[in-house]
Design a protein around this nucleic acid. Structure first.
Lengths: 237, 237
DNA sequence: CAGTGGTCTAGACCACACA
DNA sequence: GTGTGGTCTAGACCACTGC
């Protein structure tokens, strides 16, 4: 009787990856150990070096091992693993929770970049920017307060944009490509005015995401996103 | 005279990747567009399908495109990009900043898991855990307050561990492998006792990292890491 | 059924980095 | 020099999925 779930007669890179990972986790190959070369592993697993290579490359991407030509593949200590967070639009984040999204513009003005912003974004003197503040609601409950600055020099047509119905984040995603992003997260005590928008008390802890976006070396936008207390950013891996 | 920097006579997957990415960013291939098949791209770039495949696979990993058999490769809207954060030991994080690390144990006790912890970690009734609280300093300034729970059932020998000189995080990294991690970040107003440890005022906003670690389905440890105000977690990509 | 991506093989040349 | 990983070619079979 033939096998109903036939075993493939070849060895997948997944098999190699799983086996190697298991040996690392069971400390059969402890940190700092140099693993057998790809050729040797290919012999052991009866597959080609290409297959071993893909397995090892992925393990390296995931932070388990480090590879160097001539030296070989070394097992890393205290695995420098990486957490990944999906960066999405607020609207998508809210809708993904099954809530209804609502947007409301607060202020929108064209001004000369203040000193602290000039310094932070490396702008030249007297450079004009668009400053937008707005709110994002989930099921009509405050969710996020957005405080955004857009560099007019890199997106001249922003001066004609209408942020009354469409949020500046969605507008930017549609209008401007970007090449680099810097994000940082921190916790602050809310100032009275922002707390008011968020329906919180002044001094309440707020999770703040700060993001700067570049297009080929030129700053496009800088934004502070203040969340209501209780907000939580999660990932599993 | 021969070319001093000879151009390779083959096409690298990097070339393909860069070109495709550029076309996506310039909206030559707008969101929802179905890209040419791998075979067609291979023809266009005069390379093998293997090479095109690697380029496209990486673009898919990075969240620019989505691939489905038979359907083809589709450009994603508002690129769901991912931010990556390196998860390291506090000690390594502090030393990477060029500061001197110091550790101090606060409390260490073996108790029965309280209800909220049982519920959160899915432990059975009356299960014992080790509860450790300790401080991490950078250049003798408070940096992080650690509040950790370790499941004795999954690491029985933890009862013999000595956390007076070695922090529980380093001990765990050395002793126990793990297969899954869930992390979440939030902002809280510090309680008086923890604020005291951190040299902050009660109510100050603190960036909190919360992490649960599993080994093949069994919870190993759960930890709350409270940071001093001003702490910032950053990444660039 | 037919077209797309997913993957493996077999072989090759090259770049890097240590001795 | 020499051994390691990095990558490409050429060809093949397969799995999924929409028609």
């Amino acid at each position: 009787m033939p096998n109903l779930v036939p075993t493939p007669e070849f060895v997948s890179y997944r098999d190699v990856k799983a086996t190697v990972l298991q040996r690392i986790q069971e400390k059969i190959w402890a940190p700092d150990t140099i693993l057998p070369s790809e050729v040797d592993l290919a012999l052991e697993f009866s597959c080609t070096r290409t297959t071993v290579n893909r397995a090892m490359r992925e393990l390296a991407d995931e932070g388990y091992i480090e590879r160097k030509r001539k030296v070989g593949t070394r097992v890393l200590k205290s695995p420098t693993r990486h957490a990944r967070f999906a960066i999405s639009l607020v609207r998508e984040e809210i809708e993904a929770r099954g809530s209804t999204y609502r947007y409301a513009l607060s202020t929108c003005a064209q001004i000369v970049a203040p000193d602290w912003l000039r310094a932070r974004l490396n702008l030249s003197d007297g450079q004009p920017v668009v400053h937008v503040t707005c709110m994002h609601y989930a099921d009509n409950e405050p969710f996020q307060y957005e405080d955004r600055w857009i560099n007019i020099a890199s997106v001249p047509w922003v001066v004609d944009a209408d942020f009354n119905t469409l949020g500046p984040n969605e507008w930017l995603v549609n209008e401007v490509p970007f090449t680099d992003i810097e994000m940082s997260f921190s916790a602050v005590n809310l100032a009275a005015d922002i707390a008011d928008f968020l329906g919180s008390a002044p001094g309440d802890a707020s999770f703040v995401a700060q993001r700067t976006t570049w297009l080929k070396g030129d700053v496009v936008t800088f934004v502070n996103l203040y969340h209501t207390s209780g907000y939580r950013m999660s990932t599993r891996y």
